[in-house]
Amino acid sequence: MLHTKIVDSKDKKLSINDAERFISSVEFGASIYFTGTVRNLNNNKSVVGITYDSHDDLVIKSFKEIYKEADEKLNIQDKAVFIEHSKGYLNLGEISIIIAVACKHRDQAYVLSRYIIEEIKKRSPIWKKEHYTDNQSDWLKGNPIVHEKN
C-alpha cells in the first residue's frame, strides 16, 4: 500500500496526521515517521528558508520504483508507505519530506524507512535553493542522479 505526492507549499503544509491516517492498521505492529525539516545553519551560513524544486513526474516515478524494490531487495511484502515531499518555499522548521512506514515488525520498519530516504537522496530529482540572512541565495550542489540505464 503506497501513497505518494508532491505538495506545493502555497497550497498545503505537510502533515503527520495525514501520514498516520494512511498507514494505521491493526495488521502492522511497528510504525516509523521520518520527517526532514529546514535547518537554520548549513556550511556555516545562516539559513532563513529553502525553495524546493522538483521534476514531479520523475519524482513520483522514483518513489514507486523504490517502493517496489523494497519487495524484491528487502523482502518486505506487507507494508504501508506514505511519502510526501514539499515543493516551493519553506521557512525554518517546516517539513520538507514525510516518510511514514508501517510493517509487521520493528526491524522491517527501521530498515524500510532508512532504505527509502537514502534512495530518494540518490534518485529523486529534487533540488534545494537556500536563502540566507544576508539576502543571498544559492542552489545546493547535489550529486548526479543515479538511474537505471535505458
Binding site: 526532514g36 524546493y52 522538483s54 521534476h55 513526474d57 520523475l58 519524482v59 516515478k61 515531499h85 520538507s96 519530506i97 530516504i117 530518494i120 537522496k121 534518485r123 529523486s124 530529482p125 529534487i126 533540488w127 534545494k128 542552489w139 545546493l140 550542489k141 547535489g142 550529486n143 548526479p144 542522479i145 538511474h147 537505471e148 540505464k149 535505458n150
Partner: peptide, 26 residues
C-alpha cells in the same frame, strides 16, 4: 516520456527534454 536517457538518445522533432542537474532533496 519521463525516462532518464543516455547521451546517445535520439531526439524527435518538438520533443520536450528536461535537464536534470545534480540532485539533493529530502
Amino acid at each position: 516520456k519521463n525516462n532518464i536517457v543516455s547521451d546517445n538518445y535520439k531526439i524527435t522533432n518538438n520533443e520536450k527534454i528536461g535537464i536534470i542537474p545534480p540532485i539533493g532533496g529530502g
